[in-house]
Amino acid sequence: MGEIILQVDNLSASYRKTTVLNNVNFKIRKGSLTGIIGPNGAGKSTLLKTILNLHPALTGSVRFFNQPFQQAKKRIGYVPQRGSVDWDFPTDALDVVTMGLYGKIGWLKRPNRKHKQLAYEALEKMGMADYANRQISQLSGGQQQRVFLARALVQDADFYFMDEPLAGVDAATERAIMNILKELKANGKTVMVVHHDLQTVEDYFDHVLLLNKTLLCHGRTEEIFTKENIAKTYGGNMRWMGENREYAVHSVE
């Protein structure tokens, strides 16, 4: 595996007075595709936001590419949860994708034709070229998620963080997104994804990070994603979990 490009030490964070993340330590290597797994309220989104300086950390340090976040942020792409924005905003799909370039375009400048072209190509890659001029509220949930992915692609970052990109999308979108994630990985990019569907973890991710307020385990999927570890992460829901896993095995066969 590649060199270490993210080092998180002793990270803690809270919402109001409740601590939602406690003493999280891990390292991510270049070229890995990591699923962040844990029950609701385990702090998965908070972990992403805290790593990316979008939520204040109580303690700890985060270093990207051996640099602090501020110096590395041009190389980092973030895909927020689809529900975090107002899809009634007066804009179209192409414009949303172009927003991914605003950091590069810089102050006092407008997106030019080249930027629009890049955005269009990213939409094309996500199979959304026909919807470029569609008002975003008229897109389905899956299409909105593809627009978000296209916006991340156009950023051309080295390290991507995605918050539940597969939540509530149709099967075709799920396939399209997973193809893109595998392609990013093949191109040497690193991706961390908050994921909720335990059945697909083994197919989708080469690394998993099991989280429930604190880091329970992290490593290669085949070593870490075991019944015992999942039970430890999800607490009492062991039996329900076991059935799910069996079902997953059958469907693969």
Binding site: L54, K74, S84, F89, Y102, R151
Partner: peptide, 22 residues
Amino acid sequence: IAFYKEWKLTSFDPALAASLGI
């Protein structure tokens, strides 16, 4: 006119804006 795209982005998706360094 000067801050059109910054205000548009911070209105639509402040999290992305922050991660882009705006």
